[in-house]
């Protein structure tokens, strides 16, 4: 579904990602793990178009997207979340999510000024999409609250809802449970599972090993920008090199 070949990114003299070959398995939960500074976030940023790769190709549904800007990639059905949530705190949850469906609409300035039928229809469509996404992530009850008044975990869910509102086929989640307590982590894991059950392809970066080992179908391990292992959770847990990379710490933690 999404495939990268020889993906490399250099910042000045530093190699952040070094000729990685990888393919995301459709309809599965794919995880990317690795020690701090292993290049996981950079890897995400390359695929989602935030950074341009130095070398390599990215192919999504038989189409090369290597040097496409982020907004074009999003339109193709690739959504993502960020480690920090970037929501507008002084606005309601729903208002924050409505813009998520903007990429599927065509209204322009002219439509806005003259409030054409197209604008009205598309606005309804965006609102409906926002409500649907908020309902899916379990936030219908706070949709009229200001973002500043909801909890950190709820903000994470809003970010998920935003990603879902873009009508994606594949969702990249950058540390979805960072800054979330253990109980809530379980809830987030359930939500991710629910997204996969709905038929979405998931690819996530995580640090919380127990959660990953339970949740993921397929794991890739990055270390110093290089892929050192790939496989099912069981295979990864047994992999010598992975254990070494984690400095003797057991991967199953």
């Amino acid at each position: 579904m999404l495939e990268v070949k020889g993906l490399t990114k250099r910042f000045g003299g530093n190699v952040a990602v070094k000729s990685v070959d990888y393919s995301v398995q459709q309809g599965k939960i794919n995880a990317i793990i690795g020690p701090n500074g292993a290049g996981k976030s950079t890897f995400f940023n390359l695929i989602t178009g935030v950074h341009e790769p130095t070398e390599g190709t990215i192919i999504y549904k038989n189409e090369e997207i290597t040097r496409q800007p982020a907004n074009v990639i999003a339109k193709l059905g690739v959504a993502r979340t960020f480690q920090s949530t970037h929501l507008f705190e002084m606005s309601t949850v729903k208002d924050n999510v409505i813009v998520g469906h903007r990429l599927r609409t065509k209204s322009n300035l002219f439509d806005s000024i003259f409030r054409t039928r197209r604008l009205k229809e598309e606005e309804q469509q965006c609102i409906a999409k926002a409500e649907e996404s908020l309902d899916f992530v379990g936030l219908s009850h706070v949709s009229d609250q200001l973002v500043t008044n909801i909890s950190q975990e709820e903000k994470k869910r809003v970010a998920f809802a935003l990603a879902l509102a873009t009508d994606p086929e594949i969702v990249f989640l950058d540390e979805p449970t960072a800054g979330v307590n253990p109980d809530e982590t379980d809830e987030m894991a359930k939500l991710i599972q629910k997204m996969a059950d709905k038929g979405l392809t998931i690819c996530l970066i995580e640090h919380k090993m127990p959660m990953i080992m339970q949740l993921a179908h397929h794991i890739m391990v990055l270390n110093y920008g290089e892929k050192i292992a790939e496989g099912t959770p069981a295979e990864i847990q047994k992999n010598e090199e992975v254990i070494k990379a984690y400095l003797g710490g057991t991967v199953s933690a």
Binding site: A70, F82, H86, D95, V99, R102, L103, S107, S112, E123
Partner: peptide, 23 residues
């Protein structure tokens, strides 16, 4: 309108706006 919402999304975070498919 959707135009205004798009502007606000850019103000909040250009990276996020881009990831939502906004030019």
């Amino acid at each position: 309108s959707l135009t205004g919402r798009t502007f606000i999304a850019i103000r909040n975070s250009e990276d996020l706006a881009l990831s939502l498919g906004i030019s």
